[in-house]
Design a protein around this nucleic acid. Structure first.
Lengths: 242, 242
DNA sequence: TACGGTTATATGTCTAGACATATAAGTCAA
DNA sequence: TTGACTTATATGTCTAGACATATAACCGTA
C-alpha cells in the first residue's frame, strides 16, 4: 500500500507519526469517535519525547481530523460532509490586493436601541443598543460590494463613537475587537431596485450574498451582509487535498 | 493601543503572538510578500523561548497565511485576502447528512471526442475523449442541484465504461480517482429557462453556482458545474479563529 | 561577466524536563 | 439516588538548550 510507504519515507519523526495516524483515519481503520493512543503511549511506541508526538497531534487537530479533549484523550472527528471556510480580511486589503484602487463611502449610520429584528439578526435576547451601518466599497471607482452591518454595542461599546465616515467598519473592528468564532453563509439573490441602484447593476441581476456573523467567546460582535454583483464577482479557492 | 490590550487578554503567549501577526496580515499592515520578523527578533520582543514563537509561526504557516523559507525568513502569502475553501464530499452524503432522502437521476451522458469548448473547460491542449454528463440530485424528491460534468478520459479511462445511471459520477470518481488539487469558484447567476426547468424554479430566479476543477498531479480529472436554487440553498461554514 | 565553491544564517526538528488546567471518575454525605 | 467535593490524569503550554539542513550571499577564479 502506497499510504504506508508514503508515511515511512517521510523524513522527520513527527511527520511520520502524523502520517501514520492520518492513514489509519483515512482508511477507516480508526473510525470517527475512535480514541487515538494517548501521548504517553505514542511516546513509548515511537521512542521519542512528548513534544514530538504533541506536535503531530496538534497539527492533526488544527486540520480538524481529530479532536483533543483534556483528560479524555484525542478522538477521530466525523468527516465534515460539507464545510466551507471563507476567510475575508477587510475589503480594502482585498481590493488593493487585486491591484485596484480602493474607494469607501458611508451611506448610512444610525445608533439605535435594538429592534426585535436587530435582536433576531444578532441572535441576542436582551434589548441593547446597536449601530446600523450601510456602506459601499468600490474598486477603481466601480461599485464592488455594498455592506449592511449591525454592531452590538453591548459587546463593542467603542463602536458608538468610532468614526466610520472614513474607516470601513470591518477594518475598524479587525483592529479593535478580536473574534474567536465566525460563521459565513453564501447564497444568491436577484437585485431589487435598492440593491441594483447601490451596485449600479440592473434590477433582476444576480447577486452573491455573504452573511457573516462574528462572535467573541459566545458574545455576538457583529452581523454583516455583503452583496456583490454576481456576474462580475467570484469567490475562488484553490486547495490541496488527498 | 488596542492591539496590545486585545492581545494581552489572550490566554496563552503563543496564541497572542499568532493573533498579533494575524491581525497585521489581515488588516493589510503587513501586505503580501512582507517579511515577518525573524524568530530571534520575536523571541527578543516577547521575551520567550524560540519554541514558543516557532509554534505560533508554524500554525500560521499551516493555515497558509505565511510562507516560511529557510535562511530567508517568513513572508506573508499572497492570495489569502479573500479565499474560500469548500470541501464537498459527495452529494449523497451531503443530502443524507441533512436527514433528507437522496435521489439521483441521470439526464444525459455522452462519450465524445473533446470539442474546442471541452478542451478549454478542462484546460487541456490535446484533443482526447471526454465523457459529458448531466444529472440531477434531489432531496425528498425536490430538485436539489443539477450537475454538469466533463471527465477527461485520458486521465480516467475507466470512466468510459462506468455505469452512471445509478451511481452519481461524483461518488464514482471519489472512490476511483484520488485528487491532489482542486479549485472552486462560487458565483451567482439567474436561471435561464433550461436551468429553471431542471431545478423546478422560476426563470429569472437566483442560482448559486459552484464550478469545481479537480486535478491529479497536474493532470485534469474533471470539471463540474453545480447549480443550486439560490434562495433555498446556502453554503454555511462555521469556524474558529484566534 | 559568468560560474563554482564556501560560509553564514534562519528555519526545521528534537529533547527532557516543568508547571498549569480542565475534567472524567471516584468518593462521600444528604 | 442525587449532589457536592476530591483526585487522578491527559492535554496545554513553555523553557533552554542541541544539532540538522537548506540556501542566500559572498568570494574567488576562469
Amino acid at each position: 500500500m502506497s499510504l504506508a510507504t508514503d508515511a515511512a519515507d517521510k523524513p522527520t519523526l513527527y511527520k511520520r507519526i502524523r502520517a501514520d495516524i492520518e492513514t489509519r483515519i483515512l482508511t477507516g481503520e480508526w473510525p470517527p469517535g475512535h480514541r487515538i493512543p494517548f501521548e504517553h503511549e505514542l511516546v513509548a511506541r515511537y521512542g521519542c519525547s512528548r513534544m514530538t508526538v504533541n506536535k503531530a497531534l496538534s497539527e492533526l487537530a488544527q486540520a480538524d481530523l481529530i479532536e483533543r479533549r483534556r483528560r479524555a484523550g484525542s478522538f477521530v472527528r466525523r468527516p465534515q460532509h460539507q464545510s466551507a471556510v471563507l476567510k475575508i480580511a477587510d475589503m480594502r486589503a482585498e481590493i488593493t490586493a487585486l491591484g485596484r484602487a480602493y474607494g469607501y463611502e458611508l451611506i448610512h449610520r444610525k445608533l439605535r436601541a435594538a429592534t426585535a429584528a436587530d435582536r433576531d439578526r444578532l441572535g441576542v435576547k436582551k434589548a441593547g443598543k446597536v449601530v446600523a451601518i450601510t456602506c459601499r466599497h468600490s474598486a477603481d471607482n466601480v461599485p464592488f460590494a455594498v455592506e449592511d452591518r449591525l454592531i452590538d454595542l453591548s459587546s463593542v461599546p467603542d463602536a458608538a463613537t468610532a468614526d466610520f465616515s472614513r474607516e470601513p467598519p470591518g477594518s475598524w473592528l479587525l483592529h479593535h475587537v478580536p473574534w474567536t468564532e465566525a460563521e459565513h453563509t453564501i447564497s444568491a439573490i436577484v437585485a431589487d431596485d435598492h440593491t441594483a441602484d447601490a451596485l449600479a447593476i440592473a434590477v433582476g441581476a444576480p447577486c452573491l450574498v455573504i452573511d457573516r456573523y462574528t462572535w467573541r467567546s459566545a458574545r455576538t460582535i457583529t452581523a454583516v451582509r455583503l452583496l456583490y454583483p454576481g456576474d462580475s464577482h467570484r469567490l475562488v479557492a484553490r486547495f490541496k487535498g488527498g
